[in-house]
Design a protein around this nucleic acid. Structure first.
Lengths: 342, 342
DNA sequence: TTGTATGCGTTATCAG
DNA sequence: CTGATAACGCATACAA
C-alpha cells in the first residue's frame, strides 16, 4: 500500500510542488525566488505562475537550517514601554518592513543577566545581525556579541570601544549642555532629578556635575536620584523631596521628560512660578514638551533615526561593505523654551 | 584526506555530539530535553552533564522544521509607540519570558493590508499561537487566522464573533460611561475630540453619541475628528478648532489621554478654567492623568493585564484545554478626578 | 543557466 | 525506557 504523500507537516505546498508544476528543478525555484537575475526570463515567469497558483510561501525554518543563517535581526532593549526605546524599535521595524528580515525583539528589563540570557537564546538562531541598546554589556554579553558571527550595532550611545558598530550620541555631553544652558540663563541652585539611573542617566548626571563644578556651583545636596523606574508621578514626588532638601532650589535638570512634566505639574499645584522661581529642563524632547504650559526646555534626541541608521549600517555590513565609519554620533539638540526663559 | 567534520554551519555542538559524549542515542537526548520524565534518572544526568560541558543549545530552526511547529507567538499590533499597545506587548513578553516561546512582533501601522501581509508572513512560520489587536480584520485576514492551525487571540476589544478567543473590553461602553459622567456632572455642551479614529475610537464615539442622544444633547457640531495620528500637540489644535466651532462648549470627551493633555495645556495657556469653564475626560488613564493639575478624569483600561491574559489563554489552548470562556471582558474603570469636579 | 546529490539539526514513527 | 531510520523543506557544492 502506497501512502500517497506522508507529509508530517500540514499539507502546505513545498518548493518541490512548485518545481513539479513549473516543470523545473527545485533548486531553480529556489534561485528564482532569491536571485531572479540568475534565472532565465522564461522560467522565472513559469515559476512565478506556479508559486501564485499554489500559494507557495517559503518556510523560513527550512531556509535557515539549510543556509545556516536566519533572516532575523535580534534586537535587545531594556524596556518596551519607555517611549525612547519604543521609537528606536519603530525605526528598526520601519527600516526592515520591506526586507525579508524578521525581527526578534528582547526585553532585558534593564538587567545585565537578562541580557546575557537573551543573547544566548538569540545566538542560537544564527541571526543576520544584532542590535543592542547601550554600551555597558557585561563581559559575558560582550563575548557573546563578539562571537555572534554577525554584524553588531550598539545603539543610543557612543563610546570608545565598540563591539562592532555604534550609533547614538553622548549622554554626558547632553547632560552638560542642559546644565550649562541653565547656568547661562542665570540659575545657580540647579538640582538634578533622576529616576531609574541606568548607565545613560548616570552619564547625564556626570555631565551635569561637570558643568556645575566648572561653574563652581556643584553641591551634592542638589542631586536627587532613585533606582525606581521613571514616571510623571515620581517626578512630582522627587521634586518635592528635592525642594524639601534644598529650599533655595531655583532650577532642575531632569533625567527625562516624564520627570520634568511631573515637576511642572507640582509647580502648578503649589503655585511655583516657572520659569521665574524654578527653571525646568527635560531630556528627550517628547512631543508634549512644546505643548506644555509653559513649554519645557529639553534635549531633543534622534531615537527614530538611530533605529533607522542602525539597520542601515547592519544591512551594509551584511552586504559586505562595512561602513567606513563604525561609530556614528547623531548628536542632540537643545530646545530652548519658556521653562527656562527668565 | 579526511575532512575532519564538514560542518557547513559554525562549529556549534549538535545533538549528536551530546549523544556521543553521553553514550546514548540522539533521540534520547532530544527527549531528555523536552520530556525529562520519559527518560531514566541515570541517563538524564549523563545527558545534562554532556549538555553543560559542550554548551549545547538546541537549534530552534531545526526543531521547527522537524516538528512542523515553531515555538513562536505571532503578535500583531497597529503601533509600537502608542503606549496602549506597548503595554499590551509588555504583558505578552513578561508572560512568555520564562517559556520556550519566542515572539514575532509585527507592526501593522493601522493598515488592514499590512495586517494581511504580516499574517501571510507569520503563517509561514507555523506559529504556536497568534495574538492580534482588534476585531476588524479584513475578510482575507480573517481567513488567514482561521486557517492558521493554532490558537488565535484577538485583544483590546470584545465583540460577538471571535475567530477563536478574545480578551479586551467594550470601547462603546467606555465612551458612553465617560460621556454620561460628564452629563451627570452638569455639563451639556459636551464635545468629542478624536484623532486617528481607528475602529476602537469609532466605537468610543458611538458610545458618546448614544449617551448624548439619550440625554437629548447630541449635536453633530460638537464632534471633531481627524484621521491624523494622535498627539498632545494635536489635542491642543483640535481643541482650538472645536472651540472656534462651538464657543459655548463646556466639556470635552477626548479620544485618549494625549489629546486630553493637549486640551488641558491649551486651557492653561488661554486661562480657561478647568473644570469650571471646561470639563475634560480622557481615555486609558496614563500615569500622568492623576498627576496633572488639575488631575484629569479618565477611563482606566487594563492593557498590561490584557496581554497577560491573552498569553494565558493561548497557552491553555496549546496545552489542550481551551478555556471554557472564549470571550473575556476585562472591563474598564471610570477615574473621577478634578477635571470634571465642578 | 540549470540540475543532481547531499546535508542542515531535529523530531516522528515504529520497533525493541 | 531506548534506539534506528526516515522525514521536515530548503540551500550548498559541484556537474553538466
Amino acid at each position: 500500500m502506497i501512502k500517497p504523500r506522508s507529509r508530517r507537516g500540514g499539507g502546505r505546498p513545498t518548493i518541490s510542488d512548485v518545481a513539479r508544476k513549473a516543470g523545473v528543478g527545485a533548486i531553480t525555484v529556489s534561485r528564482a525566488l532569491r536571485e531572479p537575475e540568475r534565472v532565465s526570463e522564461e522560467l522565472r515567469r513559469q515559476i512565478q505562475a506556479a508559486v501564485d497558483e499554489l500559494g507557495y510561501v517559503p518556510d523560513p525554518n527550512a531556509r535557515a537550517l539549510a543556509s545556516a543563517r536566519a533572516e532575523v535581526f535580534g534586537v535587545l532593549v531594556p524596556s518596551l514601554t519607555n517611549n525612547v526605546f519604543a521609537e528606536v524599535v519603530r525605526g528598526i521595524y520601519d527600516s526592515l518592513s520591506d526586507s525579508p528580515f524578521r525581527i526578534q525583539l528582547g526585553n532585558t528589563h534593564y538587567s545585565g543577566l537578562e541580557e546575557e540570557r537573551l543573547l544566548q537564546v538569540f545566538g542560537s538562531q544564527r541571526p543576520a545581525a544584532l542590535i543592542v541598546a547601550g554600551i555597558d554589556q557585561t563581559p559575558v554579553s560582550r563575548k557573546l556579541l563578539e562571537n555572534a558571527g554577525c554584524p553588531v550595532v550598539q545603539v543610543m550611545e557612543t563610546g570608545p570601544d565598540p563591539v562592532d558598530m555604534m550609533v547614538g550620541f553622548s549622554h554626558l555631553d547632553g547632560g552638560r549642555t542642559a546644565t550649562e544652558h541653565l547656568i547661562e540663563a542665570g540659575y545657580c541652585r540647579i538640582g538634578f532629578i533622576g529616576a531609574r539611573m541606568d548607565p545613560r542617566s548616570q552619564r547625564r548626571l556626570a555631565g551635569y556635575r561637570a558643568a556645575m563644578e566648572a561653574a563652581g556651583l556643584f553641591d551634592p545636596r542638589l542631586v536627587t536620584t532613585t533606582p525606581v523606574p521613571s514616571s510623571v508621578s515620581l517626578g512630582r514626588e522627587m521634586f518635592r523631596d528635592a525642594l524639601a532638601k534644598v529650599p533655595t532650589l531655583d532650577a532642575v535638570f531632569c533625567n527625562n521628560d516624564d520627570i520634568a512634566l511631573g515637576v511642572l505639574f507640582e509647580c502648578h499645584r503649589t503655585s511655583i512660578l516657572v520659569p521665574k522661581t524654578i527653571g525646568i529642563v527635560g531630556f528627550n524632547d517628547l512631543d508634549m514638551m512644546q505643548v506644555a504650559f509653559p513649554s519645557i526646555t529639553s534635549i531633543r534626541t534622534h531615537r527614530y533615526e538611530i533605529g533607522r541608521r542602525a539597520v542601515a549600517m547592519a544591512l551594509a555590513a551584511i552586504a559586505g561593505d562595512r561602513p567606513e565609519q563604525r561609530i556614528v554620533d547623531l548628536g542632540f539638540e537643545l530646545k530652548r523654551r519658556e521653562s527656562t526663559a527668565r
